[in-house]
Design a protein around this nucleic acid. Structure first.
Lengths: 93, 93
DNA sequence: TAATTTGGTTTATAATATAAACTTATTTAT
DNA sequence: ATAAATAAGTTTATATTATAAACCAAATTA
């Protein structure tokens, strides 16, 4: 009746990050930070978790001389997000 | 952009309980336990939290000689649920 | 060259979720 | 009548999480 909710996605900040990444080709750390209003520390930890789960890829490079971390959602991440949304609908409808 | 999600409701089991109660006049502990598949301990704790938050009322009585705990959603609980669902939609749409 | 800002990471702490253990009373079996 | 099993929970302990605070290195500005 109430399907299990993926604990990786059932987190306010991680859900926001994945939701954001689902709509764009890629986004860098600073942009995600601004859009979500998260602190850098929290965001760093949650991005690491999403990456470990295989839901996003993280690429460290430079924009000019400044370090720049670029995130992208993976196919697995998109699929997990899709399933999470479907499961959630059982709860809220 | 990403509204804050009510932490009382952003919990798998509490959300299931409130979702269930939103659709019925009342439900007792045992019934909720069966429908959600939760352990009694976990359910007891989460029901207490929902009650403390004013989202549900808890009435202890007897059904025959057996103790029976009956739960009901409050107006505040319904409103919080409604708002939570609205906020969530910003994340998943 | 000193102070500040940028772009993060690591570490510590507080809150949460969850299950395991326990309690009290009832019902069923012997 | 008494022992064992079940019902209906609660309390307590533990493991996981979320979050912020502290930190670091490099670049920019004063």
């Amino acid at each position: 009746m109430f399907p299990k909710l993926d604990p990786i996605l059932h987190s306010e900040l991680r859900l926001a990050v994945v939701s954001l990444l689902a709509g764009v080709e890629s986004a860098d750390f600073t942009y995600i930070k601004k859009q979500t209003g998260a602190t850098a520390g929290n965001l760093s930890v949650q991005i690491e978790k999403l990456s470990t789960a295989g839901y996003i890829t993280v690429e460290k490079g430079f924009k000019g001389k400044m370090p720049c971390t670029t995130c992208r959602i993976t196919d697995a991440g998109l699929e997990a997000f899709r399933q999470y949304v479907a499961a959630l609908k059982e709860y809220i409808s």
